[in-house]
């Protein structure tokens, strides 16, 4: 079945079947390899992408459900080579170690900041609960999300 959808702001079309997952569509067909498979069971969040602004585990979503949706991967976050505020905060706070969970982590945090520009610490931790990181103990990641929220609000005012 041919479906149409938007990825990182660009219209796309692809042939999908019932066995194809969204992660397969993104990685294999569109070569968006920032989307990582860490568990294939929706338990680690490494494959997180945003569908219509909502974080989902792309390893669980049937590719056909991308039909008519707007999908964001981390490849679509930097604009004109300029890192997003959140990406920059991840660098500044050393929220990245091996990097395998990073794209999913950033997308979940991005979705949070789109909804709440002044999240509580608990909001941040709860939002990130489905993204497992084995390197950082989450401490610098939470700091980065907090810093990004502050910077975004400061830039606005």
């Amino acid at each position: 079945m041919k479906i149409e959808f938007v990825v990182n702001g660009e219209s796309c079309a692809a042939e999908v079947d019932s066995a194809m997952r969204l992660i397969d569509l993104l990685r294999e067909e569109l070569r968006l390899t920032s989307v990582k498979e860490g568990c294939g069971a929706g338990e680690c969040g490494a494959c997180t992408v945003l569908v219509d602004g909502e974080p989902v585990c792309s390893c669980l979503v049937p590719a056909v459900q991308a039909r008519g949706r707007d999908i964001l991967t981390v490849e679509g976050l930097a604009k004109d080579g300029q890192l997003s505020v959140l990406q920059q905060a991840f660098l500044d706070c050393d929220a990245v170690q091996c990097g395998f969970c990073t794209a999913g982590m950033i997308l979940t945090a991005h979705a949070l900041l789109m909804k709440k520009d002044n999240p509580t610490d608990e909001d941040i931790r709860t939002a990130l609960a489905g993204n497992i990181c084995r390197c950082t103990g989450y401490v610098p990641i939470e700091r980065a999300v907090r810093a990004a929220a502050d910077r975004i609000r400061a830039a606005r005012s």
Partner: peptide, 9 residues
Amino acid sequence: VGSWQIRNR
């Protein structure tokens, strides 16, 4: 239920 990603689906 589950994580935010799971609750979204």
